[in-house]
Amino acid sequence: MRLLKLFISSIGILFSAFVSVGYLLTNRMMFIKKKDPSTIYEREILLNEEQRNWYERVPKKDIQIDSKHGYTIHATVIQTINAPRYVVFSHGVTETRLSSIQFAMLFEQFGYNAIIYDQRRHGNSGGKTTSFGYYEKVDLQAVVQYVKHWKGPDVEIGVHGVSMGAATAILYGGTYEHHPLSFIVADCPFSSFSKQITHIAQGDTSPYWTERAVQLANLFIHWRDGYTLSEVSPIRVVDKVDVPILFIHTLEDTFILPEMSEDLYEAAKEPKQLVLLPKGKHALGYRKNREAYRNAIADFLQHVKKD
């Protein structure tokens, strides 16, 4: 009887440890710590005179879009061009729509208006968890459909995404048939979220335990948030994207490795372009290579822009 009690107690302890580790791993994913919005505002507006002056002078309107998941997506329409051409900007994890201002300014030079929006659980948008593209792609669909319904069948819509936002753009383009997009620009996307979290964990755990941790996280993320890590894999759907894609990555990016963009490029259908920039850590490609980044966008749009 004593051995049986000891056995049951041991099983209980192991199960409790299993659940605790599973919750810890998935909490770090689902409720990833975000940047302070005031820090982003200071970086993008207060301390950036060029962006501040531009953002203050352009006609803009804050809008609210209903998510299919039951919350509100907060967005801003920036209307500077008298033409039915729009780019929807999908920002990275921990950021807000303000980090997209730099790209809205860039695309204005090529005749595009902008829709910047807050991803779920970021900025002013609702949503309880971050899913790194799984649920975010549904919100991106809602934003794109808003533009389509607002401006009609002749509107040209592109998507520019950074990091998680780039993965979201690919997942959207490769998941939904008959979408109205004309192009996608994917700046430093991950190819597979499982591989990405494994890469991050490599710094302080062995490959053996990293693999086990990913398997455990996959089990708990499915139980807690309704999807599996394999469903957050742009590499699995990029070949279904039927519009031109420009992949941009910096060679100095050690957070999401440039090899991930190279893999996505190889798997994507034509027409496609890949630009590897020499300078800049993660998500800093434009800030550190402004002329080269602009030239890459100009060359890409030359082949996709409607008259």
Rank of each mutant, 00 (worst) to 15 (best):
K272L: 00
L219F: 14
Y172L: 00
P84V: 06
K5Y: 09
S182R: 15
R28K: 13
M30Q: 12
M164V: 02
F132M: 10
L219W: 13
A17F: 10
N124M: 10
Q141M: 13
Q202L: 13
L274Y: 02
R97T: 07
N48M: 10
A292N: 14
R121T: 15
S233D: 15
K306C: 08
S100Q: 12
K269C: 13
Q196Y: 04
H122K: 07
I32N: 06
T168K: 04
G174H: 07
I157P: 05
P234S: 07
V185Y: 08
F110T: 08
K305T: 14
G158I: 03
H74D: 13
K35C: 11
F193K: 06
S16N: 04
A17N: 05
Y286P: 06
I245V: 14
I170T: 01
K137A: 07
R120K: 02
V243M: 02
G111N: 00
L47W: 11
R224I: 09
P258T: 11
F255N: 10
V237I: 04
V232Q: 12
P271A: 00
Y265F: 15
D139E: 03
I81A: 11
E136Q: 01
Y112C: 02
R121W: 10
Y146H: 08
S100F: 09
S206R: 02
H91S: 01
F220W: 06
G158T: 07
H179G: 05
Y55D: 06
D299H: 09
L216G: 01
V93D: 01
E266Q: 15
K148I: 12
Y134N: 06
H69C: 03
V275D: 01
F31L: 14
Y208H: 11
Q302A: 15
D66W: 07
V304T: 00
F300N: 04
T254D: 09
T72H: 07
A292P: 01
T198K: 13
S9V: 12
D239W: 13
A114V: 09
A166W: 01
F89M: 03
E270C: 08
Q202M: 15
K305G: 01
I11W: 15
I73A: 02
I200R: 08
W223V: 12
I200T: 12
E49M: 11
K34G: 12
D139L: 05
S38G: 03
V243T: 02
T175F: 02
V58T: 05
G152L: 05
M164Q: 09
K240G: 00
E231M: 08
F18L: 06
E231R: 13
I200L: 10
I45Q: 11
Y293E: 01
K281F: 08
A186I: 03
M29Q: 08
I297W: 06
I63Y: 12
L277G: 06
L181N: 05
S191L: 05
H249D: 07
G174W: 04
I170S: 03
V159F: 04
V162A: 06
Q196H: 05
H122S: 12
G12S: 02
E108V: 10
S100A: 14
I11G: 13
G111Y: 03
F107W: 12
E156W: 05
E177N: 10
I73M: 00
E231Y: 05
V87N: 10
D62E: 15
K195P: 00
